[in-house]
């Protein structure tokens, strides 16, 4: 695998009600964004188990994005509080593992913020391109 062939592969966990809608809006608004993103839709960001994130890294994701509704806007009252508690903790764990902190990011995106979503993806992709492939990427995975 040469460096030329490598393109960042980013896994984004999006909640059904806000950030997935945000991704939709980004598409409808025709905001340019890199094709490095793989979206996994969950009903609520509170559904995101730290293990999902770690598994994504082990499967070869170069970065994992955790996104959800703005705090206070959760469709299920407090799911994103729960996501945040876990995220703060996961952040420490990923750092302790020795992965760059840029590889795991959290952002709250509402359904109308298509442009924010597109910018976020663009920023992360640029950061990851700088960092190079994830050291946890299995052999043979591009």
């Amino acid at each position: 695998m040469t460096d030329k062939e490598w393109e960042p592969k980013i896994v984004a966990f999006c909640c059904n009600w806000c950030s997935y809608g945000g991704a939709d809006t980004a598409g409808m608004g025709r905001f340019q964004q890199p094709s490095s993103l793989r979206i996994i839709r969950v009903m609520c960001s509170g559904r995101i188990d730290p293990m999902h994130v770690l598994n994504a890294f082990l499967e070869g994701a170069d970065a994992v994005l955790v996104t959800g509704c703005h705090i206070g806007d959760c469709h299920y009252v407090n799911g994103n509080y729960k996501a945040e508690v876990r995220y703060r903790f996961l952040e420490e764990m990923v750092r302790e593992l020795g992965l760059e902190p840029e590889r795991l990011q959290l952002n709250w995106i509402s359904a109308s913020e298509g442009e924010k979503f597109a910018n976020f993806v663009r920023d992360v992709t640029a950061q990851i391109r700088q960092l190079g492939p994830s050291p946890l990427k299995p052999e043979g995975v591009n």
């Binding site: 730290p50 293990m51 770690l54 598994n55 082990l58 499967e59 764990m93 050291p135 946890l136 990427k137 299995p138 052999e139 043979g140």
Partner: peptide, 15 residues
């Protein structure tokens, strides 16, 4: 068969 760099088992335990 997973061919992971680190085992998922250790990740769960660490968590």
């Amino acid at each position: 068969a997973d061919n992971y760099r680190m085992s998922m088992y250790h990740m769960v335990r660490l968590l």
